[in-house]
């Protein structure tokens, strides 16, 4: 079973991203998928996490993820607020929305890093909500490129499943751009 934890803030599309990954994984043939928000009140701007579990067999665990295989960080300001690296398994993937390239990211440990300027990509493809860039779809592209867990094609199918025609086209374009532009640093 693969466990993915999403770090972001209320309103950034964290829960939707966790959900689209689950749907894409299911379309790809994984029989067991779950996605869940942090249980509790929903508050705009407050740090929150969501989770996706992906497995070949139906999933029979609903508890909170302790250590994830993949941690996706939609909002880099969270590094100073919560222990993101602490929620990651050794040799896991840290996937960050940042202006920096993966090699320049000043976080070190026994994990791989993938990075992309998801905010710039979102703005380029007009993925905006109330003026703020929606970085969730680009980050799915980065996740796919880095880990290969769920293919870009499956994610595109997932987006088509989830969104209406026009919205899915722009989201798919942003996903592809992020997939191409992602930079990767493998752990030593």
């Amino acid at each position: 079973m693969y466990e993915v934890i999403w770090h972001g803030r209320g309103g950034q599309g964290v829960v939707i991203a966790a959900q689209i990954l689950a749907e894409a994984a299911y379309l790809q043939g994984f029989k067991g998928v779950t996605s869940a928000p942090t249980f509790g009140p929903e508050r705009r701007g407050a740090p929150l996490t969501a989770s996706t579990r992906i497995s070949d067999a139906p999933i029979r665990t609903f508890s909170q993820i302790e250590k994830a295989d993949i941690a996706v960080v939609l909002d880099p300001s969270l590094f100073g607020v919560i222990d993101i690296v602490g929620s990651l398994k050794p040799k896991g993937w840290l996937i960050v929305n940042t202006l920096k390239k993966a090699d320049e990211v000043d976080i070190h440990g026994c994990f791989n890093i993938a990075a992309a300027d998801a905010a710039a990509i979102a703005i380029r493809f007009h993925l905006l909500k109330e003026g703020a860039p929606m970085v969730n779809t680009p980050m799915l592209g980065v996740l796919s490129r880095a880990t290969g867990l769920v293919s870009r094609e499956s994610l595109e199918k997932g987006l088509k499943w989830k969104l209406s025609g026009g919205a899915s086209a722009t989201n798919i374009a942003a996903l592809r751009a992020a997939y191409e532009e992602a930079s990767i640093r493998n752990h030593a």
Binding site: A22, Y26, K31, G32, V33, T34, S35, A36, F39, F62
Partner: peptide, 12 residues
């Protein structure tokens, strides 16, 4: 059914 644990968790 259990609140949040099932009510807010997505699955097939």
């Amino acid at each position: 059914y259990d609140g949040f644990v099932l009510s807010h968790t997505m699955m097939p």
